[in-house]
Design a protein around this nucleic acid. Structure first.
Length: 285
RNA sequence: GCUGAGGUGCCGGAGUGGUCAAUCGGUGCAGACUGUAAAUCUGCCGCCCUAACGGGCUACCCAGGUUCGAAUCCUGGCCUCAGCA
């Protein structure tokens, strides 16, 4: 089975730095699994790490305005992985978008169903109740499989209706990877500190990158209010850092349930060695 | 010092005699997640007991008062803000 190394975890734990190190050691290439770093430009805003000479796959693949989703990611990432394997190198997938990672390594059938703009548009302003009724009508089965939270989530309801009404439901093939999942974590207080530092470092450059019309990206709102003179740098900085911190906690919630992840605490001084040992054992096996 | 506005739970901010532990938003905590996932959504969120239903306690600046009953009305005090000095 082809090996891929996955490095995941919340933001600001040093995933990319670690991945770059491992790439050197094991002749690997990085693939970013990050839903915002796919956008061209916005390096500081989305925290792209270009400190090394090696290119990172799936950075800068689309313009900020254009459509991009898990399905695009999976397609691109899989073809890049095939390519890297062809060149006898090790793909190292690094990123914090948990859903992308899950989709990459499992088979999600509904991913074959593309968005239906007409349908989305038709339901855009529909009330929650009418969406619920519509889904129960077109697919009681799907409705029944949704949990209580999703049953109240308009976006998920519309997507469920979209999938239910599509003819293109093709079962997907589960990829066969020998994947090693390395998770990087840190105590919350440390995470908060690292986020604050990172945001401060990137602030000025990010401020020059923001503009109207960008997709939802953490920090844009506070940076714009700063560049427009509606808030001080200090305020904008604090707000942006806080948003990142909240995001980090959401990431932790997601990754918690992925039981195949081997966790390493970066506040632990022997963390680096531990990861190295773990990777070595897996890779040379 | 005068005039006007106002002091509500961690924060913002509703409520203006009972149905108020107090709408709503944010934060916080827990969680969901199968093409927007850095998105979207759910639950809980004064304290104590309870698995829950429910019950008890303390609360709307402070002190008095009116009333069967006050976050809501009255009096006094303290503080904040805006304008005038």
């Amino acid at each position: 089975m082809k090996k891929i190394l996955i490095i995941c975890g919340p933001t600001a734990t040093g995933k990319t730095a670690l991945a770059l190190k491992l790439a050197k050691q094991w002749n690997g290439e990085l693939i970013s699994a990050d839903s915002r770093q796919v956008y061209k430009g916005l390096d500081a805003l989305t925290g792209k790490d270009r400190s090394d000479d090696g290119a990172v796959w799936l950075y800068d693949v689309v313009e900020p305005g254009s459509e991009f989703s898990v399905a695009h990611f999976v397609r691109l990432a899989r073809s890049v992985i095939v390519d890297i394997h062809k060149r006898k190198k090790l793909p190292i997938v690094v990123g914090g978008t948990g859903f992308y990672l899950t989709a990459l390594t499992t088979a999600i059938d509904s991913l074959a169903v593309p968005p239906n703009p007409a349908l989305r548009n038709a339901f855009h302003a529909a009330s929650l109740e009418s969406l619920q009724q519509e889904l129960q009508r077109v697919s009681p089965d799907r409705w029944g499989r949704m949990n209580e939270s999703d049953q109240k989530n308009p976006r998920r309801l519309i997507r469920a209706i979209e999938v239910a009404m599509s003819a293109k439901y093709i079962p997907q093939v589960r990829p066969h990877f020998d994947a090693l999942w390395i998770g990087l974590i840190a105590p919350l207080a440390m995470l908060k500190q690292r986020i604050t530092n990172r945001v401060a470092e990137r602030f000025d450059k990010a401020a020059s990158e923001v503009r109207d019309g960008l997709p939802p990206i953490l920090g844009v709102a506070s940076l714009l209010s700063f560049t427009r003179g509606q808030s001080t740098k200090k305020e904008a900085l604090a707000k942006w850092a806080w948003a990142e911190y909240q995001y980090a906690k959401r990431q932790v919630t997601w990754f918690k349930k992925e039981k195949h992840i081997q966790w390493f605490d970066v506040s632990d001084t022997s963390c680096g060695e531990a990861v190295a040992a773990c990777v070595t054992a897996w890779y040379t096996n």
